[in-house]
Simulated assay, not measured.
Amino acid sequence: MTYATTPDGTRIAYQLRGNGAPLVLLAGQANNHHWWDLVRTDFHPARSTLTLDYRGTGDSDKPDTPHSTELFAQDVIAVLDDLGIDRTDIYGTSMGGRVAQQLAARHPHRVSSLILGCTSPGGPHSIERDNDVSLALAQTRPGAARQALLDLMYTPQWLADHPGPHHTLGDPRMPSHSRRHHLAASNRHNAWDLLPIISAPTLVLHGTDDLLNPTANAPLLADRIPNAPLHLIPDARHAYFEEARAHAGRLVLDFLAPPPHSGRGLH
């Protein structure tokens, strides 16, 4: 296992796979790098992929201290520094998209291009999920909340054809304090005032049937970030990147500019 150490002494586990200029893949809330297991090899003909386990997940340390999307972004910087990566492309989905917003706004010299998937700006300007969705996720009957989350992630037909295991439902090894810190970090995110200063070329992706992070957040991001194109993926739910992997993966690869000959990648 390979680790980077953050300024506050937290060890962050990371995983570099494939060859070529790296594409950083950032997972959703309370998830580790396995979030990307089904699709990361789709990028390997053109790029290497770099994932990490957020603090509180996977093989990273799990301090019982407050978390934030800005702190998660600083953890990503620690990983890039450990690898000697000056500047790279970032693809964040769900809470990972919120972390990616912080990266692009606060560390613009480290981000070559940005892809934001199934995410939102947070704060009072974002569109909240319906109350019935929140109630379904809060069910206490055994298995009920998990099934509700599955239904928010995938269509019934896809689930019938893909019985699992599903790696987008949260890290089962997370301690309860880490789950609370992740939830708080995501809930407190508010990048509305930061979005207009993002200078990296940005692509916004979202499924048209996403109720977990309502689709209406996608045009908010695209309108707020300068010159950001928006692609809505028909009939897809929150885990569009898996269910519509061929379509979504091609959109990402087509958007990413060929890496320059210098100033980017592994030293």
Results as ranks from 00 to 15, higher is better:
P214F: 07
P156S: 08
W35I: 02
P258M: 09
R146K: 09
W36G: 14
A160I: 01
T10Y: 05
V79Q: 07
L114I: 09
A185E: 05
Y154W: 12
H107S: 07
S262A: 11
V133F: 06
L194G: 00
R264G: 09
A216W: 03
H247Q: 15
L38D: 10
Q102M: 03
V204G: 02
D89R: 09
A73M: 03
P234S: 05
D42W: 05
P196D: 03
H34W: 10
L205D: 10
T168V: 09
Q101H: 01
M153L: 15
A228K: 02
L149T: 02
V111S: 03
V204K: 00
R106F: 00
H167E: 06
S48G: 08
A78L: 00
S178F: 10
L114D: 02
G97T: 02
S126V: 02
T69S: 00
C118N: 11
V252P: 07
Y240V: 13
H247Y: 13
S262V: 03
L80V: 04
H261A: 14
T6L: 00
L230I: 06
E128F: 00
H177I: 01
H267D: 14
M153V: 04
T10L: 04
S134D: 07
L159W: 06
A216H: 11
F255H: 10
R264M: 15
V76E: 04
Q139K: 05
D81Q: 07
P226W: 01
I198P: 09
A144N: 11
R11L: 04
P156A: 13
L25V: 12
P219R: 09
A78R: 09
G143P: 03
G96E: 01
P142Y: 12
Y14H: 04
L150I: 03
S120F: 04
I197E: 01
